[in-house]
Nucleic acid binder design. Structure first.
Length: 895
RNA sequence: GGGCAAUUAGCUCAGUUGGUUAGAGCGCACGAUUCACAUUCGUGAGGUCACUGGUUCGAAUCCAGUAUUGCCCACCA
């Protein structure tokens, strides 16, 4: 028993991820490998991690994001970049406050806001965030994320608050931020406004009512908003109503007589409903815009709790929307004003995507960011936010991957309205503006003030509202680096190299970062190309279940928890299954069998390494894997040539963000070429230096994808070094042996040929049979590799000749010119073999015929490129050769 | 209503600028435990590339249209 064998027994047969991952992660973290090397000669590469909610837990979206980002950062770090991967968490304003309020309600509180007051509720939330923050941090670590924890940031830290206030000041003084009474989306449940793109629509079937309103019939799904309607709008070209336009009259309505007038506007769709509508300016966007246009009143009908204001109706005052709707219809019915009711009307109800509270349009004083005011110095002109948003992408300063999202992005900008940034919740950055009740002026101040800036009176109070969470998120890429101070980190790492996130967040966040970054950095002296937040945007798809459906908590059987999967299969396996098979911007299906499949690959690597390290000195001593060019066998030359090709291919694929392909490239190479062939050949004759070198290089190539298993093995293979900080492999120009590679290709085909013959006959698979080869030109090659052929094809004896008489009573095949015979006389079912040959000859004949047809087609010969024609000719002659051999075989068998 | 994506083997997906006798993994079938690995190895069956036209010497690939599925945006008085 050799010493190597003893060593092998010490290594477990299967790789147990759990036994290594935490230890390896700790080693990386403590070594300082996650922090960027600040050597000024190194080029910067940076990724700002999209911050998960501080109170959240890791889900598949995070896991995908972390896997992709970590692959990129590890790759760049190994390539020698000064690679910064900055982690952080988000205070997630509305989401977090609603979670804590709900929690307090479950603990018995009726209305936490009222009962606790602002200060105490904020304390509660802060406590909750502090307690739960470590959960997500540890889960990020579990994914193997190589981010620099010493630079961790939080969107609601004091530093971040300084940055938010500074941005607010700049925008406020530029007149970009203004306060105005406008129609906003009011969430009656959370008691706050929400932005336009935070709305979600739920389809609902509701009756659609037609009411007689004076001389016209109007249609509506919302009778409860109609108390104060006194303007009828029709299309100016509508013949039905032409003579009514401009007229006034009394109409009988819900609460008695109303003086109504008729106006005309182009915005009316004549084909919709009756072509006439009354307007409710306070609770509909279009109606509001009309009321602005024609200077109409806009009285509030529904209050902020979603109830009818009492002054409108004795019967309905204080009622909920649905109850009031019923009541109004009842009243109108009694008055005989209901024309008809369509019961099958389907419309969309707006809800807040956070918490799903019903959203009502309301007119309120809110803070807005003007997207049309030209204030940014951009390419020698003052430009608006909208213009800059468009230019950064149109001019390719920012590249969106996949590029089809650029169109979606432009479309979004075209429809962009001023951004409502104030929220009526407490958990968030407070609006740094003070109002004076005496002179009714407002002014900016980030700190507490005692007196009004204008009239010096002490009657001042801070604006009660907080900022939309995306207002602070828009600063993420540069406030994390110290802005507004010009820190070395900021100067070095901005713009980020790539922003990686899900496509569902393109508008919420990606667009707003472009907005915030270009504005703030241009204002503080950065040139245009340094003011963008990132150069590339990589958008990953959503993870779905095996049927392509969204994973949903209501169907737990379809849900995959990444942490469970890590526990069961290891982090490397889950990382691979989230990356392989996915392309940017496309959703991907995930199921447990897939993860198990990649776990098998992880184990394959483990065992490949186990073999190599047990069959040679287990570790590589310094310089020992230097390859001696003079001592290379054909097999060595083949695998080294392939390795060179693989290095080049994988590098290109990762550079091009083709991560799935890159992963598959190393997978196929390691398993299908290195293990299946080279390692098997090494069991006959081995070159330990090459064996180890290819293993070592493969580990380097696979490391970004599967950091744990590769680092674990590397630790044994190259003691004293850490894979995470190793150099990314480069192809070695000396290892280019195309002719030996071709030769080995023929040897492998030959082995496969024999295997096929064996499998087709009823020969016991374990039986060591005899084979005869006529190798012709390849005689030296086949003689050289005879032992390998014997072993891989499981032959007992092998005779090799340059040439010879065709052998009867044998199974035969050929590879190129090489003839192979398995003289198994009594074991062969010659009838079956004849049948097989007939079929093969028939298929081949058809194929040759089609080629012949093609090669006789003058149009083909005139139009196709030379190489293609040449190729077809080769295929044709090869086919003929093969056909001839098959026919000879058939003759032999038939004898 | 507008737009985007997908449609290839039983399942999940590849298929580079048009030129392969259309591939992989899983699953299935048959066979294999001599010392890296049964989380393994070998072999195989299985496809009118959704449909209809068109462009071309040549189409899974390009164009037009249709169908199915999913998503996004807008509107819904």
């Amino acid at each position: 028993m050799s010493a190597h064998y003893t060593k092998m027994k010490e290594i477990p047969k299967t790789y147990s991820a759990k036994d290594h991952e935490d230890r390896i992660y700790k080693m990386w973290e403590q070594s300082g490998a996650f922090a960027p090397d600040l050597d000024p000669k190194k080029k910067p590469y940076s990724i700002m991690m999209p911050p998960p909610n501080a109170t959240g837990t890791l889900h598949l979206g995070h896991a995908t994001m972390l896997a992709i980002e970590d692959i990129l950062i590890r790759f760049k770090r190994m390539q020698g970049f000064s690679a910064l991967y900055l982690p952080g968490t988000d205070h997630a304003a509305i989401a977090t406050q609603s979670v804590v309020e709900k929690k307090l309600q479950n603990e018995g509180m009726q209305n936490p806001r009222q009962e606790l007051g602002r200060k105490k509720l904020l304390e509660e939330i802060r406590k909750f965030v502090d307690e739960s923050k470590s959960t997500i941090r540890n889960q990020i670590r579990k994914m193997g994320t190589s981010c620099d924890w010493s630079r961790e940031r939080y969107t609601f830290s004091d530093e971040m608050n300084t940055a938010v206030n500074e941005l607010f000041r700049m925008m406020y003084e530029d007149g970009l931020i203004y306060r105005g009474g406008r129609i906003v989306n009011w969430d009656t449940k959370m008691q706050t406004t929400v932005a336009d793109d935070e709305l979600e629509y739920v389809e609902e079937k509701a009756p659609f009512y037609y009411f007689k309103y004076g001389p016209v019939v109007i249609g509506t799904a919302r009778p409860e908003t109609k108390f104060g309607d006194k303007v009828i709008v029709v299309h100016p070209k509508d013949k039905r109503y032409k003579n009514l336009i401009g007229k006034e009259f009394d109409v009988e309505w819900i609460e008695g007589k109303i003086r109504a007038k008729v106006i005309a506007d182009e915005c009316i769709d004549m084909d919709l409903g009756t072509g006439a509508m009354t307007i409710t300016p306070a609770h509909s966007l279009i109606d509001f815009e009309l009321s602005q246009k024609y200077a109409l009143e806009s009285p509030q009908i529904i209050d902020f709790d979603g109830k009818i204001r009492p002054e409108w109706s004795k019967a309905c005052g204080g009622m909920d929307i649905l109850a009031a709707r019923k009541k109004v219809v009842e009243i109108l019915e009694k008055k005989g004003l209901v024309d008809r009711i369509d019961e099958n009307y389907v419309h969309n109800v707006s809800v807040n995507y956070r918490g799903k509270g019903v959203v009502e349009p309301q007119i309120m004083k809110q803070w807005f960011v003007d997207v049309n005011k030209a204030v940014i110095d951009w390419k020698k002109k003052k430009r608006s936010i909208k213009e800059v948003l468009q230019d950064t992408v149109r001019s390719k300063m920012i590249r969106i991957i996949p590029d089809r999202f650029e169109k979606i992005y432009f479309h979004w900008i075209d429809n962009l309205r001023d951004w409502c940034i104030s929220r009526q919740i407490w958990w968030g950055h407070r609006i740094p503006v003070w109002h004076c009740t005496k002179c009714s002026n407002s002014f900016f101040s980030p700190t507490t003030v005692q007196k009004c800036k204008h009239c010096k009176a002490p009657n001042i109070s801070q604006d009660p509202d907080t900022l939309d969470t995306w207002f602070s998120s828009q600063l993420w890429t540069f406030s994390t680096l110290g802005w507004p101070e010009k820190t070395p980190d900021l100067l070095r790492f901005t713009p980020s190299s790539v922003l990686e996130t899900g496509y569902d967040i393109l508008f919420f966040w990606v667009a707003r970062m472009i907005l915030g970054s270009t504005y703030a950095l241009r204002k503080t002296g950065f040139p245009e190309e340094k003011s963008i937040p990132f150069k590339d945007v990589y958008l990953h798809g959503l993870i779905r279940d095996i049927h392509g459906k969204k994973m949903s908590k209501s169907r737990p059987e379809t849900c995959i928890d990444p942490l469970d999967m890590i526990e069961k299969y290891g982090t490397d396996a889950i990382r691979l299954s989230l990356v392989i098979g996915g392309t940017p911007g496309n959703d991907m299906r995930l199921y447990e069998e897939k993860i198990a499949g990649y776990r098998n690959f992880v184990n394959k690597i483990w065992n490949g390494a186990r073999f190599v390290m047990s069959s040679a000195e287990p570790s590589i001593k310094k310089g020992e894997d230097k390859i001696n060019l003079k001592k290379l066998s054909r097999a060595d030359k083949w695998i080294l040539t392939r390795l060179n090709e693989i290095i080049e291919k994988v590098t290109d694929q990762i550079e091009d963000y083709e991560l799935s392909d890159a992963g598959l490239t190393v997978y196929d190479f390691f398993w299908g070429e290195y293990c299946d062939w080279y390692v098997e050949m090494s069991k006959v004759t081995k070159n330990p230096a090459v064996l180890k070198h290819v293993l070592k290089t493969s580990l380097q190539l696979m490391h970004p994808f599967m950091p744990f298993v590769t680092e674990t093995i590397y630790g044994d293979l190259c003691p004293g070094t850490m894979l995470i900080t190793e150099d990314w492999p480069k192809p070695n120009p000396k290892w280019n042996f195309p002719s030996e590679s071709d030769e080995m290709g023929r040897i492998m085909d030959l082995v496969s040929g024999i295997r096929v013959l064996r499998a087709e006959s009823d020969v016991d698979a374990t039986k060591k049979i005899h084979a005869i080869i006529f190798a012709h030109e390849d005689i030296a090659l086949v003689l050289d590799k005879a032992e390998i052929i014997k072993r891989l094809a499981n032959l007992g004896t092998l005779e090799i000749f340059e040439n010879g008489e065709k052998i009867g009573k044998a199974l035969t095949t050929f590879v190129g010119d090489i003839e192979i015979y398995l003289p198994l006389a009594d074991l062969i079912d010659f009838e079956a073999e004849k049948k097989r040959l007939h079929k093969e000859i028939d298929d081949l004949a058809k194929y040759i015929q089609s080629l012949d047809h093609k090669l006789k087609n003058k149009k083909f010969l005139n139009n196709a490129p030379k190489e293609i024609i040449e190729n077809e000719r080769i295929k044709f002659t090869e086919g003929l050769k093969r056909l001839k051999k098959l026919q000879e075989q058939l003759e032999q068998v038939s004898k």
